[in-house]
Design a protein around this nucleic acid. Structure first.
Lengths: 120, 120
DNA sequence: CTGCCTGCAAATAGTTTGCAAGTTA
DNA sequence: TAACTTGCAAACTATTTGCAGGCAG
């Protein structure tokens, strides 16, 4: 894979992120008139296929990318995202076993209300 | 909520399903020239908001609806879906607690290869 | 008979793709 | 220089919406 200047910038943004970002988030953070949104889409998908980043889906609408395997608490009030550890890491295999199914990865998101939004 | 003939048919299909279905799956199964796809979309979303059905997202593309809370093993080879029980039911609360976060629900999908597709 | 629900058609939003030109190794 | 990558514009797909007429309660 060629490490172009565009891909460097995209990886930079992603590696500094604590929470997952959409392609558009990353595109906007880079603010380079000469960077195209479709390049961001293509690069992130490439990174994902090559297993350099993780992908998850939040609020059932958009792809989010992040450098590390985490799950997230997503607030339905303010959309804040809080990273949490993975509670089924290591159990994946056992879940598939009764079916002869070989689990390779999983995606989970938890929804609810953060401390500030619970008064709703 | 008004129980129209369209909604009855949609619920019927969903209640007989063992695996989650997309709006289009349901629309095609009903095969009524006078039923519109957007009615299926609107009805299922309504059922979901009123907590009569569950919604999940699979292969990061489409909404799937199902009558009961289950997770699924999704085969990356043949797209087969196998329902499995929920392994974090009851732990939800504990996961959010350290952050003062009140978890209301979660969505998880496991990916991998079924017994027939493992020779890939 | 009134307000919720539907069909229809058009709009949206996120993502993907074809192609010619630019860049990396 | 050859293969990979990009920018641009157009295409695609799943989903949503406005509106006028229809139907359940």
């Amino acid at each position: 894979m060629r490490m172009t200047s565009q891909r460097k910038k995209i990886l930079d943004v992603l590696n500094q992120a604590k929470i997952p970002l959409t392609c558009d988030d990353i595109y906007l953070q880079i603010e380079d008139d000469k960077l195209n949104l479709s390049t961001v889409y293509r690069s992130l998908e490439r990174f994902y296929v090559d297993k350099h980043v993780y992908k998850t889906i939040i609020n059932q609408k958009q792809y989010y990318y992040i450098g590390h395997h985490h799950h997230f608490l997503v607030c339905l009030g303010c959309e804040k995202m809080i990273p949490v550890g993975c509670h089924i890491e290591g159990k994946e295999k056992a879940i598939g076993e009764p079916y002869g199914f070989q689990v390779t990865h999983h995606d989970m998101t938890l929804y609810g209300y953060c401390n500030l939004c619970q008064t709703h």
